[in-house]
């Protein structure tokens, strides 16, 4: 390996640049692929329908998928540590119905919102503790979280609860931006992505998340706090679940215990499509955002074509497959280099 590096450096500048580039940014490739697909989808749809990239559609893309974006941020943290969190959909449903029911019983929203977030984080904490301190596999621990969240949602209420609190109504108010518009829910989602990306890239905690995903054993031997990091990623994912519950309740104007059934799979799919490796150690929050946009665009295209929405999952499934095969090729190539 070192010899090929040396030869590359001695040859032309172009080769050097390429070698340096692949040496540094090879892990960005899947995310670039996701961006390419997103652009291709958008351009293709515009060419086909002629009226696809309207301000209304583009604005809706963000607002319709705000909750998904928030969940994807939390999931990215978990998957980068080589874990998985199946509980996010039901945590979102639980915190959503919990918030709606508390508001309906007259508790001020300033108290309700923190309660929703803490409830989400608490389920995350439970999962994290099971994973870290009791050696439970993430799949199983978060499966318990999935059951727990869903069951608790039904314990709170078996039916949908309408929310007419002014704060939540305000959260879905559209703010015009020229021909485009945005709502506070969308702004919150974007902020979550930005904060997530900054934490991942510019804090020691974020870097430890990557290190744990690369090799947990090494990270421990390097003297870093693996236990805290692993518990924290599940807490963050749970917190994101709580926030998504808030956004979805505000967006739909109601809490509903059947919300988010199967959403955990959508979230995992968008995170993978966004370039995060399920084996851990590589991935980007911004990539996951791209993944959400790909997902949302496919959904919009299908409703534009008037086709069955069931096609969405078929196409996302196929896309997921393509990405995983490509990732697999990349990983096995880089392993050969070692």
């Amino acid at each position: 390996m070192s010899t090929t590096d040396t030869t590359a450096r001695q040859s032309t500048d172009v080769a050097t640049t390429i070698s340096t580039f692949t040496g540094r940014y090879v892990s960005l490739l899947p995310t670039f692929a996701a961006i390419t697909i997103l652009i291709a989808l958008l351009v293709g749809a515009e060419l086909y329908f002629g009226n696809f990239l309207t301000p209304r559609n583009v604005s809706a893309l963000l607002l319709d998928n705000a909750y998904l974006m928030v969940l994807a941020v939390g999931m990215t943290f978990v998957i980068v540590t080589a874990g998985i969190d199946l509980s996010v959909g039901s945590v979102m449903a639980f915190t959503g119905i919990l918030g709606a029911s508390l508001i309906a019983s007259g508790i001020p929203v300033i108290i309700v919102i923190p309660v929703m977030l803490v409830a989400g984080a608490a389920i995350g904490l439970l999962i994290g503790v099971l994973v870290q301190y009791f050696n439970v596999q993430p799949f199983i621990a978060s499966l318990a979280g999935l059951f727990l969240g869903r069951g608790l949602a039904y314990v709170v209420s078996l039916n949908s609860i309408r929310v007419e609190d002014p704060v939540l109504v305000w959260m879905r108010t559209r703010i015009p931006l020229g021909d485009f518009y945005i709502a506070p829910t969308g702004i919150i989602a974007i902020f979550t992505v930005i904060i997530g990306a900054l934490v991942m890239h510019f804090t020691r905690f974020g870097r430890t998340v990557y290190a744990v995903g690369g090799s947990e054993q090494s990270t421990r031997l390097m003297g870093l706090n693996v236990a805290r990091t692993k518990v924290m990623v599940y807490v963050i994912s749970g917190l994101c679940g709580g926030l998504a519950g808030l956004l979805l309740t505000a967006y739909t104007g109601a809490g509903y215990p059947r919300n988010g059934i199967g959403t955990e799979l959508d979230v995992i799919a968008v995170v993978v499509i966004g370039g995060t490796l399920l084996t851990g150690g590589r991935g980007y929050v911004l990539g996951s955002m791209i993944g959400v946009f790909v997902f949302g665009t496919i959904k919009t295209i299908i409703s534009f074509m008037g086709a069955e929405q069931s096609w969405t999952h078929i196409i996302v499934g196929v896309l997921l497959l393509v990405f995983v095969v490509v990732q697999r090729a990349i990983v096995s190539r880089s392993q050969q280099k070692e």
Binding site: Y210, G214, S215, L221, M222, G281, R282, E338
Partner: peptide
Amino acid sequence: VNLCANLS
């Protein structure tokens, strides 16, 4: 070598 191969 207990380092993380995925990091720089």
